[in-house]
Structures are given as C-alpha cells and as structure tokens.
Amino acid sequence: MRFEEALDGFDAYLRANRGLSENTRKAYRSDVNECLSALEKHGCEDLNEVSIEDLRVWLSDSSKNHARSSMARKTVAVRGFFAWAHDHGVTAVDPAAMLRTPKIPDVLPAVLNESQAERLMERVDEDGAEALSQEPDAKRRAVELRDAAILELLYATGMRVAELVGLDVADVAFGNRTVKVMGKGSKQRVMPFGAPADRALRAWLEHGRPALVGKGSAEALFLGLRGGRIGQRMVREVVHDRAREAGVPDIAPHALRHSAATHMLDGGADLREVQEILGHSSLKTTQRYTHVSIEQLKARYGQAFPRA
C-alpha cells in the first residue's frame, strides 16, 4: 500500500505512547488501513491531498456494512492518525480535525435476572460436583471443572473475556479471595470473588488443570484441550453451551459482566465501587447499569404492587 510507511509510524506511536491494549491497537491499525486503502482506490497519491469531504465519503460508504459502535471507533482511529500525521510533519494540515464521531444509541445492556443467574450457577456447580465424583476420564473431568471455574469467576468478578484468558495461576490469591487482572490500557486492578468461585477454582487447579497442562502453559490459569492458554473464542463457546444447558437465555460472556454489575448495584453496592471492580475509566459507563436496575425494579413493581 502507498501509505504503509505512515501507517507503520502511527502504529509505532500507539505502541510506545498511548498505553492501548494489543487488541485496541490492532483494531485502530486495521481501521486506518481500511480508510487509507479506500482513499488510494479513489486516486489519492499523497496524504496532503486528503480533504474532510474525502473522509466523510469513506465514512458514509463504510457505515453501510458496520454498526455505529464500529464506525465510532473507526472515526476515532482515523482522527488520531491524521492528528499524528500533522504533528509529525507528514501532512501540512489535519483534514480529520472536524470529523464528527457518529452518535451511538444508548442501548441498555442485556442481562440475566437474578433467578436466571442463580439457575445457571447452580447448574455449573452441579456439573463440577458430578465431574469430581463420577467422571472417570481425566480430560473430560478437567474440562468440566475448567468450565465451572470459568463461569463462576466471570460472574463473581464481572471481568472481561480478554482479562480472563490472560490470567496466570499466580494472579489468584486464595488467602484473601482476590484476583489480579490486566485491564484495558495495561491498567492492573484487584477484584474480589466469593466462596463458590473459590471452590470452583480450587477444584480446577487441584483435580482438573494437571490433566491439561502442556508445554508453554505452565503459568496460564485456564487451558485449552491442547494444553495451551485458552482462547477467547473457546470461552465464548463455554458460556453459550452452559447457558443452553441451564435453560436460561443465550448469552455471551459480556452479558455475564453486565449481569454481575447490575446484581451488585441491586444488592446495594456503591456506584464507585462497581466502577473500580469493573475497571471502567469513566463513571458514566458504570451508570448504564443503574438504568438496567431501574428497569428491573419497575418490572417487579408492576408484578407485585396492586395499584401499579
């Protein structure tokens, strides 16, 4: 691509200065690459030729195939690239300075209600107990215990899938029931977990993990069938499968995060405490869950109050 050198320079800048997660940095590079490739196809030979009208045309075309949330990220990435290009003398002006980010509808996150979450966790507990007492095949037992520990930890902490798959055994402190995670922007935080997650993790580490451990996975907390660190796709499959088996609505791991946050607030947790546990940089993000709690309260009110 004609603009590969500029793209590499921007990528190096992100790596060295912005503190972004690897996934976010890769997404930004992909977004900018998409934009620059489109500009090149339309005859652009020099970044100094790019106008805000060109960028608006690209956004309009790209929005036909992407959600608004994706377009918002793409806009941020492209705006960041041209700001970097201008600051580093690659371009004489910044054509993206006035590029507006698409508004994202304030959609309430999907959550399990408390009874559905309880049903899911009870099923997970039963599967784990059965694996310990009856399952003769070591690998099958290991998978059952691993899946139980994954579900328990996701719901107990509300951590992200990327955070879960990045955990090492040393990150879990059973003495005070906490786990240390590396969040977005390489920010570490410590999250508490309860007795059910404690039991599930201990069972996995003592009776399951040794059957799966392989080369290069000595440190990873959760392992795949081939012995390496488990991937995000496998964790998503685990959550979908367990939800189906428990007879609750089909959910993704992020819905467990939403559910955990909502149930913490329903139980009386302070908004700032939930923000700290989930690793939100902005309190506004955490406040979305208060809306979910209010919607659930209104539903219960309508069912229980005679003059609702």
Rank of each mutant, 00 (worst) to 15 (best):
residue 46 D to P: 07
residue 119 R to I: 08
residue 113 N to G: 09
residue 22 E to F: 09
residue 254 H to P: 09
residue 74 K to D: 00
residue 233 R to I: 04
residue 224 G to R: 13
residue 61 D to K: 09
residue 94 D to G: 02
residue 129 A to R: 15
residue 129 A to S: 09
residue 293 S to A: 15
residue 192 P to N: 04
residue 14 L to S: 13
residue 257 R to I: 01
residue 114 E to N: 12
residue 240 H to V: 12
residue 178 T to K: 02
residue 209 R to T: 13
residue 289 Y to P: 03
residue 256 L to D: 09
residue 35 C to Y: 05
residue 240 H to G: 11
residue 229 R to D: 12
residue 70 S to P: 10
residue 264 M to D: 07
residue 129 A to M: 13
residue 275 Q to G: 02
residue 139 K to F: 11
residue 176 N to G: 08
residue 163 E to S: 05
residue 290 T to A: 10
residue 207 H to R: 14
residue 225 L to Q: 14
residue 139 K to H: 07
residue 66 H to C: 10
residue 38 A to H: 13
residue 156 A to H: 07
residue 54 D to P: 04
residue 199 R to W: 03
residue 52 I to S: 12
residue 6 A to Q: 15
residue 270 D to M: 08
residue 226 R to V: 01
residue 110 A to P: 02
residue 169 V to F: 09
residue 19 G to M: 06
residue 205 L to A: 05
residue 213 V to T: 12
residue 285 T to R: 03
residue 233 R to F: 08
residue 103 K to A: 11
residue 7 L to I: 13
residue 159 M to D: 06
residue 134 Q to A: 12
residue 50 V to I: 11
residue 154 L to P: 05
residue 167 L to V: 07
residue 55 L to A: 04
residue 58 W to R: 08
residue 272 R to K: 10
residue 49 E to N: 11
residue 74 K to L: 00
residue 96 A to N: 02
residue 129 A to E: 15
residue 216 G to I: 03
residue 304 A to W: 04
residue 29 R to E: 08
residue 50 V to Q: 08
residue 211 A to N: 07
residue 111 V to P: 06
residue 4 E to H: 11
residue 221 L to G: 01
residue 235 V to W: 09
residue 140 R to P: 00
residue 39 L to E: 07
residue 173 A to W: 11
residue 131 A to P: 04
residue 301 Y to H: 15
residue 292 V to I: 08
residue 192 P to W: 12
residue 164 L to Y: 08
residue 26 K to W: 08
residue 268 G to W: 10
residue 286 T to D: 05
residue 205 L to G: 11
residue 193 F to M: 02
residue 254 H to F: 03
residue 96 A to I: 03
residue 65 N to C: 03
residue 63 S to K: 06
residue 260 A to K: 06
residue 32 V to Y: 06
residue 249 P to D: 06
residue 34 E to W: 02
residue 53 E to H: 06
residue 182 M to L: 15
residue 250 D to T: 12
residue 9 G to M: 07
residue 116 Q to I: 14
residue 307 R to N: 03
residue 56 R to F: 00
residue 256 L to E: 02
